[in-house]
Amino acid sequence: MLADIFILIGAFFMLVAAIGVYRMPDLYMRLHTNTKSATFGVGFLLLGAAFRFQNLDISARALAIMIFLFVTAPVAAHMIGRAAYFVGAPLWKGTLSDDLKGRYDPKTHELMSKSKTRKTGDKPTK
């Protein structure tokens, strides 16, 4: 019973992730749904499967996949997001502000912590 509910929730969230990836306006927001909803969905699905199998080995495997996905999804999102900013993927027109603008060094791929125009001595606002 509980396993059924988990499986349904999981499948639903994966569908939400797919809809999000299909209709979100820019790449960064697509990444949002991809990392959060898809990972969450597959996590629930695996949890449901872990409950369904009356076998400890398999349940442990399902949990291992779940943990692995939860660890790797943010890393993958970080890599894609970083690459996206480098190749200049456009932000959605409704984006309000962009603190990253002009802070990457295009040659060395280094990232400054503040813009060059500000004095280097002042502390960042908390």
Binding site: M14, A17, V21, L46, I80, A89
Partner: peptide, 21 residues
Amino acid sequence: TLDRVVALDLMATLSIGFMTL
């Protein structure tokens, strides 16, 4: 291409879901 990488990543996650099911 990056857009497609995102879609592919999602498809991989979906495939994991399929296999589990």
